[in-house]
Amino acid sequence: MSDFFKTSVPSSTSPDLAARKEAVMNSVRSEIALANAQELMNKTNEKCFAKCVTKPSSSLSSTEETCLTRCLQRYMEAFNIVSKTYTARISKERETS
């Protein structure tokens, strides 16, 4: 009976174990968040450089910098639109199947 309770209530494990579990989960979460941010940085860098710096000169011009700033904002917006459309479609497909 006591064994049954042990396995069915995970939160009853020792506080040390629970803390280690939390630590593992948090490190996984932050690693994934970091990878996501890096991916977004790489993409915006690549896309906005292609769009805004068409003819590289000795330094970035103010026009190029304005373009890069706006491009970054638009790319984030595009990411959100794609994300919303994609997840909406996925849940729709899941409902019908």
């Binding site: 993409k43 595009a78 794609v82 994609y86 996925i90």
Partner: peptide, 10 residues
């Protein structure tokens, strides 16, 4: 899921 969204956005 996130990786597909990155690809699609690109």
């Amino acid at each position: 899921l996130h990786s597909s969204i990155h690809n699609l956005t690109s």
